[in-house]
Simulated assay, not measured.
Amino acid sequence: MSKQTYKKRTVPDHESQLDSGPTAHAGNAPLSPIATVHRAIAEYRRWHTARVLDLCQHIDMEGVREYEYPEYEEKCRSYADQADEMLDQLISRLTAAFGLPAGESVTVLGTNFQVIPGEINEQARAAFSSGQCHALAQALTEITGWPAAAVLSQQCADEYDECGDGQQTADGVCICRIEHIVNVRPDGSLIDINGAHPADHVQGREPGLPIVPMTERLWRIVSANAEWRDPDIAVARSFVQPLLASLDSDDIHEAKGA
């Protein structure tokens, strides 16, 4: 299952100071890697100056004015959240501009797994079958166009029926029933980090589980739900070509054995 429990940050969009596009500028042309760094430096300095000037309004020669301390403290918390969000955005931009370290292990976001980008081994299979399957599904759809599908448990796991409040359900599916996300190859096979599976069963999971298309509404509740990790798309993309090559190889072996 691709879940964990943690609290996602909810910094409003208008508070995010770094450009959300990792390598884009006003003209929509990609920035060079060095220009990406220069832009990030300029944006941080602008944000830092605005933060300092804002907080200084609550300070006199003796420090923070006592009657303004609650507002000052609230602003400090807000700026700390912004800084955390900016760091995430910066790393995304730098990754897009420079790529992942070649031949070096990296931590898969939101997990304890260390993988070498592009190398499908036991660690990669574990990370992208029990923590980041949704990231790989998105990367596969992006590159191949193969649609994603959700493997569902037979019943809702929420004994308190909190899924029924309307915020955790979409298209008749509650979030706690989504056990795994795969892609559907044109021949009907189900594809995940472990390879190709029959159209009605993912190896290693209970036979006969319902499989439904991942609609936009389902993707939205997955993205918003705190139990699902933020997708590590950068690392997931590195596994797409090796995975596709392994599928082709398997098909060749099957044909020779027929």
Rank of each mutant, 00 (worst) to 15 (best):
residue 163 C to G: 12
residue 32 S to R: 08
residue 158 D to N: 12
residue 150 A to T: 02
residue 117 P to I: 06
residue 30 P to W: 07
residue 134 H to F: 09
residue 256 K to G: 04
residue 48 H to A: 13
residue 140 L to P: 00
residue 258 A to I: 10
residue 225 N to R: 04
residue 110 G to T: 03
residue 138 Q to D: 06
residue 169 T to S: 15
residue 221 I to Q: 11
residue 129 S to R: 14
residue 86 M to F: 07
residue 86 M to L: 13
residue 66 E to I: 10
residue 34 I to R: 09
residue 26 A to I: 12
residue 101 P to M: 06
residue 190 L to C: 03
residue 207 P to G: 02
residue 243 L to M: 07
residue 38 H to E: 14
residue 136 L to E: 00
residue 146 W to Y: 07
residue 169 T to A: 14
residue 117 P to E: 06
residue 69 Y to V: 05
residue 230 D to Y: 07
residue 207 P to Y: 08
residue 210 P to M: 08
residue 70 P to M: 08
residue 6 Y to T: 06
residue 159 E to W: 09
residue 124 A to V: 10
residue 139 A to P: 00
residue 15 E to S: 10
residue 34 I to P: 02
residue 209 L to E: 01
residue 229 R to E: 00
residue 115 V to M: 05
residue 129 S to I: 02
residue 176 C to Y: 04
residue 52 V to W: 11
residue 45 R to S: 04
residue 83 A to I: 12
residue 118 G to K: 08
residue 162 E to Y: 11
residue 28 N to F: 15
residue 86 M to C: 12
residue 109 L to D: 08
residue 106 V to H: 03
residue 253 H to W: 11
residue 177 R to D: 00
residue 109 L to H: 13
residue 239 F to N: 02
residue 147 P to H: 03
residue 180 H to N: 02
residue 159 E to D: 11
residue 23 T to V: 15
residue 230 D to Q: 09
residue 122 E to Y: 07
residue 36 T to N: 00
residue 229 R to D: 01
residue 196 A to R: 12
residue 21 G to Y: 07
residue 186 P to Q: 05
residue 177 R to E: 08
residue 150 A to C: 12
residue 201 H to R: 13
residue 9 R to E: 10
residue 37 V to T: 03
residue 190 L to I: 08
residue 102 A to P: 01
residue 187 D to W: 04
residue 170 A to V: 01
residue 19 D to E: 12
residue 27 G to A: 14
residue 82 Q to G: 08
residue 256 K to P: 01
